[in-house]
Design a protein around this nucleic acid. Structure first.
Lengths: 350, 350
DNA sequence: ATGAAAGCGCTAACAC
DNA sequence: GTGTTAGCGCTTTCAT
């Protein structure tokens, strides 16, 4: 690869100054049409490609935004990786984070923003997040993907949007879906339509949205005079935890009527685990999920769940971030995104 | 947002020079441990985030690579976008390009490379590709996503890997899957096992891999003494073309025994269209695909196809590109990736 | 309308 | 082991 072509080369060839070359590209109205033509011809002939680094340095902006995700979104477990022909693992289908990423990509495209994808295995690997933050004008991160110190550090430099998070530090925005109401609707359905008495809950409390789901579930149960079960830990991205939770259910003297999971991913795994134990859903036990991922639509019967506008979350995040980058502070922190109860068959409905 | 924290601030606070700060981060072995500690402490206290632009400019490398895709990968048709609950459109599932992108992301992650995602609607929107090319150390592009001039321009500045392309210009590498052999195997199966006589072929010749598929198909047919049909145009990403092709089949006086499609996406759409016309696959007519996308595994019966190692293609591209960026020229242009015939039920097998 | 020149924040010789 | 300093390629006043 020969020496890189720069503005200087183009300027020389066009017989103008570098400033004119720069203007020709960025402020065409300030330059005589003919000059522009000459400059463009020279640039073309030379195969000029402007350096984004130089431009970013000079402008103080890169024109790109970053998306920071947990690694489990990106890195499949080793076994799965080998078996290219696993039959129907949920990982075959787009998961929550995949759908959100898709929304982010789409919105970036339509806005002409470049998208940097980052992420790491542990939720707290400093070098990476900083690396991403240093490259972009704004950052979107999944809730919990950033520790407080890193959030602060990143938010101190550029606008940050946390997905499903909460405004933890000044300068950090968040896209919030009303998870609580969705879970309330679902829980009510289980209580009022199916008259279930005993519930189990598989999930976690690691992020605000997870907490909202649990809150919606437990408070609805309490209001209805049902006893609130202890939460059984289950993490999306770690199916083993879900399977273990189901295992503990099976060992209890009595089975619950319904297993409420705080993600579809957990629900699908749970249904599978129950099936292996000889239990049929929903005949022997009801199971519900949360999110609305594709895998849930494909199982038979279809998963009863709460649908989040996943791609919409991604799009909203980009909108919010773009506004923040422009300095146009949006009035609403989170656009009011809604999670809607979605009836399937796993709750016992036919 | 206050003034940005730079090396100067950190240096001052740590009581050292900026060079030392730089070294502390990039060549820790060259700096006294205690100095490092001081520098890090200062950086931490200040919330220092190094500017990738400045670094990239100084180093002449950005540490990122770009992925450039057609827009149809990214932007769904408007109708589809509205109907968040379309039931089973193939777009719900990862398509070829999605799977490849996934492989790219995974490999980037494990190599600590940042990934820039670009793309555009028309295959030839100069500003975008140049923009991406200016930001990264190397570029991966889907075959046909880059026009010759842009390919040249990009390849003149940074290494470029074309997926499923061919080495069109010096400096451009390519990841190639043996599409021809896969299609030969599939076609033989149709001839030798099913004894089909009359064939239709839906596809295109826009990229080297598509041409290889057609070549494998048509030459195998010719060898077997079957007559080679005219290709009916069908483009993945434009289901209407596929539907139209099926329409023209239906109008012909006699139906072919088998419809060979050069993508799974086309095959799935074709099966659908045939179904609407009252024809059952494979009872009335056989249909085959190419790629091995998830949607093909889900239909009933399962699609007979040729599986490409899609994620593997993405991974290979990153490997190749990384080597090229390092200046370590890989011996093999394309790692020899293989496409394997995958028997389903749509060919007539049970 | 165009040019000269001062940075943008960092790296990497080179000197101490 | 640490400091000085000259760029990296572009943008952007300020003159002309």
């Amino acid at each position: 690869m020969a020496r890189r072509i720069t503005v200087y080369d183009v300027a020389q060839r066009a017989g103008v100054s570098i400033a004119t070359v720069s203007f020709a590209f960025t402020r065409p109205d300030k330059v005589k049409p003919e000059t522009i033509k000459n400059v463009m011809a020279a640039a073309d002939a030379l195969g000029y490609v402007p350096s984004a680094s130089a431009r970013g340095l000079a402008r103080g902006r890169t024109g790109a935004i970053g998306l920071y995700a947990y690694d489990y979104v990106l890195e499949p477990p080793a076994e799965e990786r080998e078996a290219e022909d696993v039959e129907r693992s949920a990982r075959l289908f787009p998961l929550y984070a995949d759908e959100v990423q898709r929304g982010v990509q789409l919105e970036c495209r339509s806005r002409g923003l470049a998208l940097m994808i980052g992420g790491n295995r542990a939720p707290d690997h400093l070098p990476h997040i900083i690396e991403v933050a240093g490259r972009v004008d704004g950052l979107i991160a999944f809730a919990g993907a950033l520790s407080m110190p890193h959030l602060e550090q990143a938010a101190g430099r550029i606008p940050v949007v946390e997905l499903g998070g909460e405004a933890r530090v000044p300068g950090a925005r968040t896209v919030l879906v009303d998870n609580r109401q969705g879970m309330v609707d679902l829980t009510r359905h289980l209580i009022e339509v199916h008259r279930y008495e005993r519930f189990a809950y598989l999930g976690e409390l690691g992020t605000p949205e997870f907490r909202a789901r649990w809150d919606g579930f437990s408070s609805t149960l309490a209001e209805a005079g049902r006893s609130v079960p202890q939460m059984l830990p289950a993490h999306p991205g770690n199916d083993a935890t879900t399977a273990a939770a189901v295992g503990s259910l099976l060992q209890a003297p009595t089975l619950p009527d319904a297993v409420v999971c705080d993600t579809d991913q957990a629900a699908v795994v749970a249904i599978d685990a129950l099936g292996r134990a000889g239990l049929s859903v929903p005949r022997d036990i009801a199971v519900t999920g949360f999110d609305g991922i594709v895998a849930g639509r494909l199982i038979e019967p279809r998963l009863t769940t709460v649908r989040q506008p996943m791609a919409g979350v991604g799009r909203a995040a980009v909108r919010l971030l773009a506004a923040a980058v422009e300095g146009v502070e949006e009035p609403s922190q989170g656009e009011d995104l809604v999670a809607t109860f979605s009836l399937g068959g796993t709750c016992g409905c036919s």
